[in-house]
Write a protein that binds this DNA or RNA. Structure first.
Lengths: 227, 227, 227, 227
DNA sequence: AATGAATGAGGATTCATTCAT
DNA sequence: AATGAATGAATCCTCATTCAT
């Protein structure tokens, strides 16, 4: 009796061809967001980039926002993948830090463009903003735990609030990743990872980190000089 | 013959009332950008928020992008003001670092929302993106010079690339400012400034910084323990 | 904090010009519905018929359905007006019946096209269908009361269910009005009103109605014949 | 040269299975029109309701309008069947009237939804509207002939125009059928048929009809009262 | 200066129909 | 004969901007 009024809600494709088209659209959408920004993210542009016709877009997505959801989820998935890879096989804390920073730098590099659009309120969708927050929380949470472990082991400065410190140093990585991708002549990845890791290590007073020696030498020199 | 002027090309207001209306529009535009994002930044919404009628908007601004220019310039001005205030009267490097971080934290807090929109390519206007880059450059440039001076004075780790380090630590402050303003229960400002400053100081190995002692003590303890 | 997401909801015009434009759109919409049916009822066609530009439509109406609401309300208003005019000053029940039928014939004539579209589910809007039902109910309700009064006064057949009878005879008027307007060569109004009234009167056995004599004469004749 | 055929032009199904699928689609189309209106009458919805896949629709029908044709023809067929059943075996005019009204009430009940859609100009197809007119004409024509016969036999009021009267009373039946099917708690069929028949009979002054006596009694009473 | 109505190009979405499998 | 993905013209709606008062 009651009349149906909800849109058919595009069904997931059943055939291989369908899945390929759909994935192509998501990928195209992501590329457009990354390279040309929100204002270029139109169904028409996405369809064209994916090499399909205009209406095909709506065979797979309810709306432009629906595609955005899928793109964001795809990006979020990559970020989380970067977190999980982080190898526990390595013993040396500094080496692990370097590895972790490299992964995150890469992950944020690709992700930040898309995630910030959402953050900026491009789409008026609370659920999306939630996803972005969760990613940051996950990232910071991981770093917080790592720092706390080091502090407990007496390998890092115990006077730092682990969470706030993790937030600050994680922020550093995120924003550097973003800034780097906007540069005309970006710093070389190794250089950036090296610096970020050394700064991070020194900031938390990590025992056995590369720049650890400098302070001692400096004090020694200063002592000599002042004598 | 006579010059053909399609558009009246809004003249700067001559009366006090005019100036007040104009400033009100700029302020309204800024508030909307900060609180509701780019998609809410419509001439109609701005006019309504400023409490004037729809058409009045175009009495003062050529276009929506024109207003955006003014908003961005206003924000940029605040950022630069924060830089200039930076007190040279203080002698202690760490104290100056704290003061500087506090000012930037505040400045980025307000500015980041607006500047990132531009960064995101909200407006297809190269000139605007230029302004944003200049602000960042100015900020990083200042920090770079400061760091170099410290290195030259033997007060900071000379093995760090000054520019990349300044970029990284400046990024930390910027992103923390942004993250803080998005939090439900933000950290208290003093706490944040304190942590950022200590992390910054430790990261560059600043002589005489609060956490300097920890490394020595840790080594001593470690030495004792291993004996 | 919460972001606003409801459409501005077009404000009623404040100026005379605005009101004129708005009324023109409603009128144009009604004419299109009456003359060219639902499928021709597009914002573009309405605007063009009203002699205004495309976008002006949306200055006054949220959507095509919004305009339909206004059109239906306007039609409904006319139907009700027809009911209220019905003169109580006339004493003779049959004369009043004729007057009433004439008014309803005219009212249904114009209204039926529009109201049936709604009835047919052109717009998926329950509220509209409700309005149509209310009009019919009002009409039938009036006729029901009139019949009951006549029955109580001994002037109409008391064996008839007043409501069902009112529904049936009212239906007759409505459908005749509709059928007439669809004819190539419609019956003349006076003829139709005369017939409807006589049929209605005879159907309820109204005392003093024009055809009352026939039955008696017929019986008399029949009697004579059979004699 | 060879005939160019853009479209395969659906052939009538040769297999039993094919016929069943085709009939299922027509039935599904009809149900959708009756229950959910014109706007829900999409090839997709029809196919889904019939339980076949999307593209199968076009295996059997050239277009949506093609299916509509078939549905209308099916409905029209039922209406005509109702007319033909009308039993000439019954002698009593009133009894025949009752039987006829019952059949038409049922037939219009189902048919009116679909036929009115066409009438409303849902499909921009003149041929369809023609079919609807023919049905009404047939119906009214039958009633006209019946009435004329009664008048000639001295059994009905000869002062009524047979065609206009048939139109009016037929309209009554049609519209009551339609109104009844839209009611929450419809009147019971027997009650409706009884009332429609009595009203019809009284309206034409049918000799020997149930309410005939009332007028005489009323006059008698009135006479007595006035004495 | 101020107002608010008017404009129309641009963008999102629908859906009848076609096509490859 | 059946399937469901692909197509794109047609349509609804938005909103930056212009204009008459």
């Amino acid at each position: 009796m009651g009349r149906q009024r909800t849109k058919p809600a595009p069904t997931p494709p059943t055939t291989t061809r369908g899945r390929r088209t759909r994935d192509g659209l998501i990928l195209a959408g992501r590329e457009i967001l990354e390279q040309r920004g929100w204002s270029a993210f139109t169904p028409e542009a996405v369809a064209q980039t994916a090499g399909v016709s205009y209406g095909t877009f709506y065979t797979y997505f309810e709306s432009r926002d629906d595609l955005l959801h899928h793109v964001v989820r795809s990006v979020a998935g990559e970020m989380l993948a970067a977190s999980l890879v982080s190898p526990d096989g390595v013993d040396d804390p500094y080496a692990r830090l370097v590895e972790s920073n490299r992964l995150y730098l890469r992950a944020w590099d690709r992700a930040s463009k898309v995630l910030r659009l959402v953050d900026q309120g491009a789409a008026a969708d609370e659920a999306l903003r939630q996803i972005v927050h969760e990613i940051r929380d996950f990232y910071v949470g991981r770093a917080t735990k790592g720092l706390r472990r080091l502090q407990d082991a007496g390998l890092a400065n115990p006077d730092l609030d682990p969470r706030l410190t993790a937030l600050a140093l994680g922020s550093m990585v995120e924003q550097v990743a973003h800034a780097r991708s906007a540069m005309e002549e970006p710093y070389d990845e190794d250089t950036v990872v090296d610096h970020l890791s050394r700064l991070w290590a020194s900031a938390i007073g990590l025992q056995g980190a590369p720049d650890e020696g400098w302070a001692a030498r400096a004090r020694a020199t200063a002592g000599t000089a002042s004598d």
